[in-house]
Design a protein around this nucleic acid. Sequence first.
DNA 1: ATAGGGTTAG
Length: 527
Amino acid sequence: MSCSPQLSHRDFVAVLSRCSTRAHLEQLHAHAFVSGRAAAQTTTFHLLRFAALRLSCLPYARRLFDATPNPNVFLYSAMLSAYVSSAAATPSAHAHAHGALELFLRMLRRGRPAPNQFVYPLALRAACAVGVRLVRSIHSHARKSGFCEYDVIRTALLDGCSRYGMMADARKLFDDLTERNVVSWTALVSGYARAGKVGDAIVLFERMPERDVAAWNAIIAGCTQNGLFVEAVGILGRMVDKGFRPNATTVSCVLSACGHLGMLKIGKLIHCYAWRTCVGFGSSVLNGLIDMYGKCGNLKGARWIFDEVSDRSLTTWNSLINCLALHGRSECAIAVFNEMRDEGVEPDVVTFVGLLNACTHGGFVDEGLRYFELMQHEHRIEPEIEHYGCIVDLLGRAGRFEDALNVISNMRIKSDEVIWGSLLNACRIHRQLELADLAIRKLLELDPNNANYVAMLANVYSEGGLWEEVRKIRKSVKEENIGKKLPGCSWIEIDRKTHRFYSGDDAHPESEDIYDTLDDLAASMEL
DNA sequence: ATAGGGTTAG
């Protein structure tokens, strides 16, 4: 590439827009010096944006910024934008948010350049990653400076509220906008979905006057986040029918839905689509594929994709470890965990859920306890309720009830139904009727109307041969008219026909054979 | 010359 020193600014920008590599950037940067153009902040502005947005090279962008004496408001907003947009794509989101906020505070402190309507939305987005308090204080600052008249700033604020579950505030901001567009609608839709009000989100989505790919993604993500997997796949169909092209975000969400549903066929179709349209090269889609193949039981497929991922993120490792654990491949899961540590990837809470699950399924009691310790003391991770659930399950199944109770009583968080349910299950296995009674009382304290618990207790007693107790419980259920038990349901797709099964159901034409096979399988598992 | 909405792992 050669650039004449007489290049006009317009041509300089045009050349930059056709560049794609670091070498191009360095050459144009050098050219800017030679031609004397580097002194103009508008030149730095374009170079900075290229470094940040095209090359995702934040340090280069920051060096350009730092080398500029008295950067103007354009440079500040370009640098803030660089931080904010890279925060979404990296695990160091917090560091980047702080980088942005530090610059914003510098503007306020120095009073020059004064933040404008372009700076506030960026500062608010950064604040979202840090805490609701900061969102509020930037809000009041914007209001005092008269910037809350701008719809874009109010939309950024709406988004901030919706990310922290403050839907009443979000709704008010939405209603007060002078003009609502696809961005503000989408912010509200995803807010309701994140707050668990997916029904409201769907109603709102259906009323949207205009939709784009991000809007469709918002509702699909909302469905998968709330367990509406069938709906998520259905909405993908509608989206395609309307002529919208699913992108990497869409594909990641729908792959997650396919994994949860065990829809391997649709998952493969989406894999093909991603391959054909080239949206599948990003790691988010590859991670989704690992998860989908893994959850559907195709562990070879999952491993194959995993090996193809060049920049393995925490999610990549977690997806593989989790699906190995899910299918009882405990040794494999532990091996992958060790591989991950060898490569210097720091595990997180999710990693340990998978790892502890692997230990539980494999009956690796001591290893499980060891990893539980490792997690807390070496990795400084505070256990969440899921980790305690694994440990109680692990100890309970091993018949170590005293240890299990110790863990429960030393927990720094409130126990939940999973904890006591695990203990109850262990009590059933080891015929610990007295402890079972304690567990069931705790369960009924948590949810007095759940007839499942009563049924579970009846199972414990009946397996212990206490028929009189069982009869009493059954009677009390009828008399007290506790909420109806929802039957568990599973299904499988064979030759395009879906076979659906409820627990204890004998409606299937081949029901007898199915139960016989199940008995055989159970017998061969007893060892 | 610049701004606001959409991921995935439990």
